[in-house]
Design a protein around this nucleic acid. Structure first.
Length: 468
DNA sequence: GTTAGGG
DNA sequence: CCCTAAC
């Protein structure tokens, strides 16, 4: 942008009586310091299970901020180069995002605009957002206020610093985007801050409110400022969201007779089971994150690879995901209570646990296995264990049938189980034959009779395999 | 309530 | 993963 454009833009802003005087204050140094105090509301701990008080990750799709060791007294804890600071996709972090009810409050002390007023401060305090507290950006030269990637998350990409040292604001055009995002008198808040500019975005727009990212752009406001048109991106996303919502409403209203594929009635008892109040941070959840459970922990692009493209709902969950269970709840709410359970890939650790469980309790004791080994995995029901074991048996048989491993890989190109696991399944299958295979399980009998090792007491319990 | 088995 | 019959 050249000088003339900047000036004209500035004047247009001025004409619109938006108090952006501080905009043209020259940045004075390259230092950007982000510091603050963060803590979580107790209610939201479950949604932020990975995060600690003094260490958190504002991971976004485009960039990450990792704030560690932030405390109230150390204002320089996060002294970094401007290009390292990007409060981007603030609301999309998987730790904190499903924020149907969270409000963001941020006021600008002394009317300072973000990054453009020397020695002024941007103060962001969340009252109901999972991250509760405040952080400050002690500005010296945040010259680049980017709103281009703003996906109607109020903080996404609206604050960023660049490493290029410049004595003049470079991105007034971006500020224009930014101001469009924030300054809208049509969205006047019921909330005023004591000191200067105050913005209160919120997203309570009715029972269909999903807490998805789009919602955060629905309503936002600024006191005593003229209204501005919402960004094109906001318009686009709003229309997409409403389209999805109306589609879901159609599906819901069409009743259960048609039974559209992929959307089924969820039994109430399942609802109760699947959604316990206390959300646990289990070892295998973290394992999931580490290994292969696709949709929560990975970047959205990767997630989308693992999700069938037809499942729009799933992709929404990806973006709004906080904890797994929250996502499920959100989707259930969105679809008026009818939603197929999430498809969660079984991790190797889960399979191992299942195998251990079968080894200990025998086939068919799915409830026991669930209670003892999968108590922390609330999304795995006894039926799931049974189904998985059945599939494992299939897989092991396939492996036995075609010794060539390539065939096996071709049959399961997406997630080949380790051969050792399948061998173990086969071994257990011979010891604890699946009920249906009981008829032709003479081999297993002979194996057991030959003292084929099973060191578990469960073997005695299993009446399907006669001992001695 | 739990499990097996078909879809 | 869902549904349902059977136990």
């Amino acid at each position: 942008m050249n000088q003339a454009e900047e000036e004209s833009l500035y004047h247009s802003l001025e004409e619109e009586a938006i108090d952006v005087d501080c905009l043209l204050v020259e940045p004075r140094s390259d230092q950007v310091s982000v510091s603050g105090v963060w803590c979580y509301e107790e209610d939201n701990l479950g949604k932020c299970n990975k995060t600690e008080n003094d260490s958190f990750d504002l991971g976004g799709r485009a960039s990450n901020i990792n704030m560690e060791g932030v405390d109230a007294t150390n204002l320089n804890a996060l002294d970094v180069l401007p290009h390292e600071v990007g409060v981007e996709n603030f609301l999309t972090t998987s730790n904190v995002s499903p924020c149907d009810d969270y409000l963001l409050d941020f006021g600008f002390d002394h009317g300072a605009c973000i990054g453009y007023a020397s020695n002024e401060r941007l103060h962001v305090g969340n009252s109901q957002f999972p991250i509760k507290g405040s952080f400050e950006i002690k500005n010296s030269s945040m010259e680049n206020i980017s709103g281009t990637e703003c996906q109607n998350y109020f903080l996404s990409n609206c604050i960023s610093g660049t490493s290029t040292n410049s004595s003049e604001p470079k991105s007034l055009d971006r500020f224009d985007d930014f101001s469009k995002s924030f300054i809208n008198q049509d969205m006047l808040p019921p909330h005023f801050s004591h000191n200067g500019l105050d913005i209160t975005p919120f997203c309570k727009d009715g029972p269909t409110s999903t807490g998805s990212a789009q919602d955060h752009g629905e309503v936002g406001a600024v006191t005593h400022k003229r209204s501005r048109k919402p960004t094109q991106r906001y318009i686009d996303e709003s229309s997409i969201l409403s389209m999805i919502n109306s589609k879901k409403r159609r599906e819901a209203s069409s009743g259960c007779k048609g039974k559209p594929p992929g959307v089924r009635r969820v039994k109430s008892k399942n609802e109760v089971k699947v959604k316990p109040k206390n959300k646990m941070v289990s070892s295998d959840v973290s394992f999931d994150k580490a290994i292969q459970v696709p949709f929560i922990s990975q970047a959205p692009t990767e997630c989308q690879k693992s999700v069938p493209p037809a499942k729009i709902e799933s992709r929404i969950e990806i973006y709004s995901s906080g904890s797994e269970d929250d996502s499920e709840e959100i989707m259930r709410n969105m679809t008026s209570g009818s939603q197929r359970k999430l498809h969660r890939l079984w991790t190797v650790s889960e399979v191992k646990k299942l195998i251990d469980g079968v080894a200990h309790f025998g086939v068919g004791k799915w409830t026991h296995i669930k209670k003892l080994l999968f108590s922390s995995s609330i999304h795995r029901t006894p039926v799931d264990l049974k189904d998985k074991w059945r599939n494992l048996l299939k897989a092991s048989r396939a492996l036995k049938g075609s010794r060539i491993e390539e065939d096996h890989k071709r049959s399961q190109p997406w997630r080949p189980l380790p051969k050792s696991i399948l061998c173990r399944v086969r071994e257990l299958a011979s010891v604890y034959p699946y009920p249906r295979e009981n008829n032709n399980s003479k081999i297993s009998k002979s194996k057991v009779a030959l003292g084929h090792h099973v060191s578990s007491p469960a073997r005695i319990k299993s009446n399907k395999v006669p001992v001695s």
